[in-house]
Design a protein around this nucleic acid. Sequence first.
DNA 1: TGACAAATTTGGAACGTTCCAATTATCTCC
DNA 2: GGAGATAATTGGAACGTTCCAAATTTGTCA
Lengths: 345, 345
Amino acid sequence: MSRERVTVIDIANAAGVSKSTVSLVLQGSSLVNETTRAKVNAAIRELGYVYNRGAANLRQANAKSKIVGMVVNDLTNSFFAELAVGIDSVMQSAGYVQFLANTGENIDRQREVIASMREHGISGLIISPARGTEAADFGGLANAGIPVVLAVRNVPGARVSSLTSDNHAGAAASVAHLAKLGHRRIAFLGGFPDTAVFTERFMGYRDALFDAGLDFDADLAIGAAPSRAGGVEAIERAMRLATPPTAAVCFNDAVAFGACDGLRSRKIEPGSEFAVVGFDDVIEAKTAVPALTTVSVDPQGMGRRAAQLLLKQINSGTAEPEALVKSVRLVVRQSCGTGIQGGVR
Amino acid sequence: MSRERVTVIDIANAAGVSKSTVSLVLQGSSLVNETTRAKVNAAIRELGYVYNRGAANLRQANAKSKIVGMVVNDLTNSFFAELAVGIDSVMQSAGYVQFLANTGENIDRQREVIASMREHGISGLIISPARGTEAADFGGLANAGIPVVLAVRNVPGARVSSLTSDNHAGAAASVAHLAKLGHRRIAFLGGFPDTAVFTERFMGYRDALFDAGLDFDADLAIGAAPSRAGGVEAIERAMRLATPPTAAVCFNDAVAFGACDGLRSRKIEPGSEFAVVGFDDVIEAKTAVPALTTVSVDPQGMGRRAAQLLLKQINSGTAEPEALVKSVRLVVRQSCGTGIQGGVR
DNA sequence: TGACAAATTTGGAACGTTCCAATTATCTCC
DNA sequence: GGAGATAATTGGAACGTTCCAAATTTGTCA
């Protein structure tokens, strides 16, 4: 079974040339004669040779490996799965292969996998950092000149590139839309206050309330896990208030779906009787009933863009950090209804 | 920025020992004196040394790399994302790092990524193969003695291990449960007939109809994309039949959710007025409204098991293929109602 | 045909590690 | 204090590739 490894020397012997010539063929050099090239390629097929990138990479110590790392905080969240797919598609086309690690918000795991990936010779890293990640966690990479792109979540003080979405503008657009529909009591549901993403969306919500001439009521800002279950919990709390809201801007789509579930179990129909807006535009948002009004972030597109940014940095060699903010778009569907006048039956 | 690489020789010089000693320290050998070890470790920290696994692996050509490959056909499907997370957790704990590639059912991409991973020296591969994968696609790996585990989908004739779930039993259990609730017209919705998974589930459906003394009606078997949109489409077609079904077994949860959406837009309440059963038990099944009755496959558990199987094969060296079938469990929730008598209002 | 240029091919060193056999330092015990 | 054993350390070869400078072959032209 596990036969001896076929090396470039075996090919050389079989084809009756030197290993240098074989190497030249492997690199597609134009220096080698067509007939020799054919002979060598035949031998390669014949013997089932497999190129050893590890060895190649060892020799050309200056050159970069065709490996990048990808670290995400929660792959079970389909937002990040889509992000990964976007990255994957660009990296595959560029001839890269990628390590993937899921940290599950565990900082120690994150440190370990980054270290492990470094030992394996990644030439770049895209990471959606776990909560509590510090700038120092990228110190080693930055120091070695390995470019890092922070995706989705930023880390204050880190001297690396980042690609985030315009959370402030997205939340503000949601509030503005709801206000225009006539809502005066708009809740903000879900999310943990210790992340930059939360802060940005929440600030967008507050600022837009102000711009619309509405008061901010702290009771209407209800933190909860950024999950479907968290959404159920948050809407429950909101509807038990003395004067409950008539609309909610949710931290993300999962929370929004949870809010819809919670409303239904209270016999309130989301969309017609209560307006719900999400954030992220996950794939199910379009087909859900009611279809979810949400802020479209296009995670696949974001992944592609993060990958392109990383490739640019890898190729340029200069690791000049760059901070990109991806613009965002409110997609109006059924879940926010058509206005408070028509909505209340 | 990108300073010179620190090697084991630099450490040796800094610590005043030979590179061999440093190597010994790196491997945690008990042959080295405690004080020397401390000196070396200090130098390692001091200089920011990073172990080069590529070089190490090149030397010990017999030994295996700590890298495995993971190839999935559709990472945007949360079933596979969960599978990946399960694999990841076991592999991380075992000190492995994994390549991930998403094929999107594209066979050529799949071939490319497998080849690329091989060049990078994986010591094992877990793959949920794209539609149309042939046994020959694993020939190279098998030949080189690199173990392969097929997850979720099997490939006929492939001399590699596999881990599938008991699709036949799962579908049969769903039908049996619905029959016991009094349903006589049970549809089978969604899925493409050219996969083994489809065949198994469909056969389970047919066989269980027979066991329950019900007729098989070809009109009630409606193929469609295994997605939420496919579910909407399938249920539409089903409800336009002269005598529509009162219950549906769906190819997977995505189809089931789509079916619920489709029912709602026809003002039929899934759960109370129409029974829907899914397959997979994705994470949202529990929190959806109505909570989805489905066949639990526990994709994370499946991923963990696939990873363990692969590790076993890597360590044993003998690549004796093994075919595991993971048992499966019907989780009864609200979406299948409580019986046809109470259900029809 | 001889001389020179261009095209092609080649051996050996190097990359950063591990392994082996061999060397050197340290103990132990009488 | 010295022999023998044990503990600790070490130089060099090897892994599979690429790169360099040099060697060889082929082609061109007077």
